[in-house]
Design a protein around this nucleic acid. Sequence first.
DNA 1: CACCACGTCTGAATCGTTTCATGGAAGGTG
DNA 2: CACCTTCCATGAAACGATTCAGACGTGGTG
Lengths: 357, 357
Amino acid sequence: MWCRTLDLDRGGDLTASIRDVAGRAGVSVGTVSNVLNRPDVVSEATRTRVLDAITALGFVRNESARQLRAGSSRTVGLVVLDIANPFFTDVARGVEDVVNAAGLAMVLCNSDDRPEKEAAHLGLLAEQRVHGVLITPTAELAPQLASLRDRGVPVVLVDRRAPDADQCAVATDDVLGGRLAAEHLLERGHRRIAFVGGHAALPQVQERHAGVVSAVRGVPDAELTVLSPDELSVAGGRDAAARVIGLPAARRPTAAVCANDLLALAVLQEMVRHGVQVPGEFAIVGYDDIDFAAAAAVPLSSVRKPRQELGRRAAELLLDEGRAGHRHEQPVFEPVLVVRESSMVRRDVAADREGAA
Amino acid sequence: MWCRTLDLDRGGDLTASIRDVAGRAGVSVGTVSNVLNRPDVVSEATRTRVLDAITALGFVRNESARQLRAGSSRTVGLVVLDIANPFFTDVARGVEDVVNAAGLAMVLCNSDDRPEKEAAHLGLLAEQRVHGVLITPTAELAPQLASLRDRGVPVVLVDRRAPDADQCAVATDDVLGGRLAAEHLLERGHRRIAFVGGHAALPQVQERHAGVVSAVRGVPDAELTVLSPDELSVAGGRDAAARVIGLPAARRPTAAVCANDLLALAVLQEMVRHGVQVPGEFAIVGYDDIDFAAAAAVPLSSVRKPRQELGRRAAELLLDEGRAGHRHEQPVFEPVLVVRESSMVRRDVAADREGAA
DNA sequence: CACCACGTCTGAATCGTTTCATGGAAGGTG
DNA sequence: CACCTTCCATGAAACGATTCAGACGTGGTG
């Protein structure tokens, strides 16, 4: 009587539904659902019977149906500026940790710093009714972000300050970071300093620039050269390095603060390739302190940000937005300067080598 | 009569449904759906009326409902071994290009080379009824992969040969790659060569190893040292380098082939840090040719694989599996050795004599 | 005039799950 | 024995989109 033919009907079909499971186990669909979601309200006997049917049929829940019913998905979107930049993959790992622990999944989207791609991704995330969105936005905040928030979808900005107090954002004190880097170089005796920053529309880069400016202003005879390559990437860095090398020796900077490590590593490479001693003739400080910074053959000094922690904190805030009594927070992390060989003066390098030996 | 109050009913609600749009535009839900999916069958007048209602209400389609109805989602999953390895982010870009062009989205998952994480991700992808799965699997092929294929979900292996002919896979000829790298070093006069490979369970690494072995066998007085760090990462490379440096000079290799560039860059860094000249005293060849290889201060020789192309081709095969008359393909790309400074200079004569003594 | 074709729109059925009011059986208490 | 709990299981009603058979009106053809 209870071994109905429902499952046989679908014998040729590829996916079993909860109904097939119910048929095979001789129970109602409601009971199967209970086994899946509140096993405690189902008697031991029926529970095992249902579970057996599930494995026998190879049943896999249909997330779409769950989501449709629940009204929102068990997914959060993370939109980053450059997936090829290890900084963002580290952030992503932090996000993933928190989000997975909460039983959610993460969708990683790459905007490539292009507003159209960003908009397209946000559109898809909206259609998917994601649980929330984490984003390092391009220069302008996309209108989609506001409309997502209007719909009640939590949005947390990552590595970017919030424009107002009514949303969460996780940032780094980039003015401080820029200042630390520049002060370090000034202390080492450098007086002609370059700032290598990508297209200056990104507030993060503007802040780093401002920090460098403030440090340089504090030293009477110091001067600053600003270089703005098109991209915050390796290509951009090579570009900037070529321009520095092209300057007449008397005006050529003796050190550079770069807006990120991708730029810094490229500058480093170009300098070495042109026979410019690093740090002897040209010192370099990067930003972000990605793993490759320490692994470079001339280890790169860099302003360290808590990359994974940034992602983790952002994800935590996102999850908290769902809860009642949530208050928006805008934590700002303090960056730390990590001094390595690329910004040491020669005698430091020698001493460092001896110490290591 | 037709300006019903449906939309007002939901005035306090956050998301408008197709029904609200229909109510506001004074048409049926079917017509709204037609406007969205087959605009040509709807008259100009009603179409604009519906579109106006859509913008007025800020209507956004519910993907879950579409998917439920359609039976499968407009998403493909990409599961990689190490999201921190730029090789995989480049593959991901290739995948994204193709997949986005086809109107699908990509979900990027990171298995961290751990079978449990891989299994968990595959489980989620199955629940999401993804359109297909692209995966660089851990050593053993997870049973979930077979069951996905049984369900009719296309699966394409990336950077890995298929075990049999009944599935698509995109691979590189890693035996050739390993051989190219080793032959290059042998030609430069090196006779004691190291192979730095991670845990040898990964077939890709086994192949590279086999290629190196075959090259070394071809030269009578050449010998091979195999180092197996725990991870195919920067940490693993540092480890291996320390072990090389620890060997007595007479037995110490004068060159290394590394199973990927992360390892190679770390070995390079450690050598330089310990005052070992690269390539003068120790030559290094990496594998994958990630961007950071060329950007290293001692530019790294590396076996280049078509990273983006690998991803693109895999995605194309995946999309093709949906079509009738699909035939499984297993393209194998030929790697190319890119010689840069890290392996360029011939080992000097003094070291050669010392080795012979 | 009858008939058909065409263009346009409707309304109900459907996808697979969750939830909830309802019902029945078993066990305990007065 | 009547009554009240407690425990389990049921089945129908959502969720929001798509699809498809059918309805209606208009215009053309024999």
